[in-house]
């Protein structure tokens, strides 16, 4: 069972690296992103959320889920014709940068990143709750 969990964790790490690379590729276009690009980000983060849940990493699960929700939220704002201010994009970029650290050495990412991750998630949550993308 433990061996299976180890193997699963290694597969998740590889999955995470590949998806974070794809996310970085999407971001190369620079902000503002299009609705299609935000949908792609949502898909990548949502899949990572499922993977983190499967390997029992609750902090990572919450982080990727929140990033998926935030990407979807920004997409909806954009679709409704709202102007998204620079700081809202910066929050997304900060989250992607943190995900990028997970795409490097995973073992050095999980614990040390917990505090900055939870701080960012609070900012994002407040932004969503206030409907504040502009």
């Amino acid at each position: 069972m433990e061996r299976m969990q180890d193997s699963l964790f290694q597969v998740f790490c590889e999955d995470c690296r590949q998806r974070v690379q794809r996310v970085a590729g999407i971001m190369q276009a620079g902000v503002p992103l299009s609705c299609v690009q935000l949908d792609q980000l949502h898909q990548e983060f949502d899949t990572l959320f499922g993977g983190a849940r499967a390997v029992h990493l609750p902090e990572m699960e919450l982080f990727f889920r929140s990033m998926a929700i935030y990407a979807r939220y920004l997409r909806n704002c954009l679709r409704e014709g709202q102007t998204i201010e620079q700081s809202a994009w910066q929050d997304l970029l900060a989250g992607i940068a943190m995900a990028g650290r997970c795409g490097g050495d995973m073992s050095q990412c999980f614990e040390p990143c917990n505090k900055p991750r939870s701080t960012l998630l609070q900012v994002i949550e407040n932004r969503i709750n206030k409907g504040n993308a502009r």
């Binding site: 299976m4 193997s7 699963l8 597969v11 998740f12 590889e14 999955d15 899949t47 499922g50 993977g51 499967a54 390997v55």
Partner: peptide, 13 residues
């Protein structure tokens, strides 16, 4: 499934 983690989990169980 595009997630290799998810595919492996299914295989494992």
């Amino acid at each position: 499934d595009d997630s290799m983690t998810s595919r492996m989990l299914f295989k494992a169980y």
